[in-house]
Write a protein that binds this DNA or RNA. Structure first.
Length: 553
DNA sequence: ATCCATAGCGCC
DNA sequence: AGGGCGCTATGGAT
């Protein structure tokens, strides 16, 4: 059963859809009336159809309602409107409503005085129902309907999971983090004041460089001071400074490490993003063009390794930390149908599999060669290893090469399930056409060529990173479902608390640790089957049951 | 006062 | 050397 929802001032409009997607009766409800209404529907798992999970679902979660399935029309519209798998375009009546948020707002045109519809861009119930119909038709008209349906379901489940992750939060011990900060930075300073350890290090740097007024936070200032001291570096980057032998470099590098910690994850971050023992960052499911998640606020996807000791499960609970090992090469093996590479994937450590198959001589070489193939390295060690990779894995390497050539030619590429890359920007197109003219000068030609190769590296990586994101979404979606079926122990359920591209954390009562571990593994297997059927690729997981995130791995 | 680009570095 | 991001501080521009 599908149930369409539109947010309106003070509540929601709700309608049950019949089997043709037509709205039957319409109800106007307050947010708090929604949960009883859902229960009254009698359907165990209605699929909620709404414009935007991010604006609706947090309200439902606050009201105590968890949604099992939904269709996020805005996210799905973004996929369908661009996918090369869609042959008959979307025919929504209010097409402009379904673009990105910014475009949903009126851009400049003064709203008519009596235009009372919704200047905030929130679609009405009728528009929701119509867009739902249009999307259904677009999928039905596609030769890749099964893949698109899976992608839309996974995308929508990801949107639910993102809202739930923010709602639940990652268990985070603020006192532990405070102790950690104090041990490295000294006592918590007043806002705007440098912590003592940093100030001491800054003084040492100033003394060693003979620059008493140096502000080490200023890159230009620092570069000038380094040059005055006879240190000829082009930038103040860590890797360049480590090459230099000078007494100022040690304290400077130490300063930069601490400045990073203090600025990004210091006390101010702690008091902004951690409350009641939970870290609640903002997630933006599929916020990246490739379909990976983005984050806004809190830095959800950049939780530094060094502070993961403060991520501690609640009493009586454990963290089940699982990450997919070498996900992208495995995905490439499957989507390119490369049997030899799939054979390597059946090793727990795919890179070691390359060594055992005699492709390269060391695991380090295997890794650098593989990453080079995925990212488009052409030179260096990675470039030198490429011929060996091509010989051993012709299908996989040809697949990414084809994606790169398509990008260089300005064409769109598409992931396994149907997410298509954006077209290159207008300026890119223009540079390519101009450089093809006979009167183009060599400099112009060279620049255009460089740009073409840059875009080719983007599309090369897009197909793999994007398909890996699809696998991860399916994994997450299936795991979400499995965890819900596990029930709880004394009112404490197993809950997803973190997701990071190819890694999940489930917080669970210790009694459920084994069941959650099984669920995480079976979901990974199912994700592989959902995407790639019986093709014999394996998606190995590293799973740890720990009290602290830092103890995983 | 506010916006924007850049440098640098954290994550995958 | 290469792909994708977010965040902070800085400094110039509006």
């Amino acid at each position: 059963m599908d149930v369409a929802v539109a947010a309106v001032a003070g509540g929601v409009h709700v309608s049950v859809l019949d089997e043709h997607g037509r709205a039957t009766e319409v109800h106007r409800l307050t947010w708090s009336d929604l949960p009883p209404f859902v229960i009254g529907l009698g359907a165990q798992h209605p699929r909620w159809v709404w414009a935007d999970t991010g604006t609706v679902y947090p309200r439902l979660l606050d009201a105590g309602l968890t949604v099992a399935r939904c269709q996020d029309l805005r996210q799905c519209h973004a996929i369908l409107s661009r996918s090369t798998y869609v042959t008959s375009p979307l025919t929504s009546v209010a097409d402009g409503r379904w673009g990105p948020h910014e475009q949903a707002q009126d851009d400049g045109a003064a709203p008519a005085l009596l235009d009372l519809t919704d200047t905030d861009g929130t679609p009405t119930l009728a528009e929701v129902v119509d867009e739902h119909r249009a999307q259904h038709e677009a999928v039905r008209g596609s030769a890749q309907g099964a893949r698109l349906r899976l992608l839309l379901a996974a995308e929508s489940a990801g949107a639910l999971a993102g809202a739930e992750l923010t709602h639940v939060g990652l268990p985070f011990d603020a006192a532990e983090h405070d102790r950690f900060l104090t041990s490295l930075l000294g006592p918590r300073p007043l806002p705007g004041v440098r912590p003592r350890t940093m100030e001491d290090l800054a003084d040492r740097v100033r003394a060693e460089l003979g620059a008493p007024t140096l502000n080490p936070d200023s890159a230009p200032d620092l570069l000038r001071a380094l040059h005055s001291a006879g240190i000829t570096v082009d930038t103040t980057r860590q890797w360049e400074l480590t090459q230099v032998d000078h007494p100022a470099i040690g304290p400077l590098l130490e300063y930069k490490k601490l400045a990073r910690l203090h600025g990004a994850n210091g006390w101010s971050w702690l008091s902004t993003w951690v409350a009641q023992g939970r870290f609640r960052p903002g997630y933006i499911p599929s916020g990246v063009v490739t379909g990976r998640w983005a984050a806004r606020g809190g830095g959800a996807l950049q939780l530094p390794k060094q502070i993961r000791g403060a991520v501690v499960a609640d009493p009586g609970c454990v963290l089940v930390v699982a990450d997919a090992a070498q996900l992208e090469p495995r995905v490439l093996a499957a989507m390119s149908r490369d049997e030899a590479m799939a054979r390597a994937s059946r090793r727990r450590d795919l890179y070691q599999g390359l060594v055992d198959d005699g492709v390269v001589d060391t695991r380090a070489h295997a890794k650098v060669a593989m990453l080079g193939a995925l990212y488009g390295a052409t030179s260096g060690e990675s470039g030198r290893l490429m011929p060996r990779l091509q010989r051993s894995y012709p299908a996989a390497t040809a697949y990414v090469e084809a994606a790169a050539r398509a990008g260089e030619a300005g064409e769109v590429v598409t992931t396994w399930l149907g997410r298509s890359s954006p077209a290159p920007p207008e300026s890119w197109q223009q540079a390519q056409s101009w450089s093809a003219l006979p009167e183009a000068d060599p400099d112009e030609r060279r620049r255009a060529r460089t740009q073409a190769r840059d875009w080719g590296r983007f599309t090369r990586n897009f197909v793999v990173q994007g398909t890996a994101a699809e696998w991860a979404l399916c994994w997450l979606a299936d795991l979400r479902r499995e965890l819900a079926a596990l029930g709880d122990v004394g009112g404490r359920p197993a809950r997803l608390v973190y997701f990071l591209h190819d890694e999940v954390i489930v917080e669970a009562p210790v009694e459920l640790a084994g069941a959650v571990t099984d669920a995480v593994r079976s979901s990974a297997r199912r994700a592989g089957q959902l995407l790639f059927g019986s093709f014999p690729v394996e998606f190995a997981l590293d799973v740890c049951v720990v009290a602290r995130y830092s103890d995983a791995g």
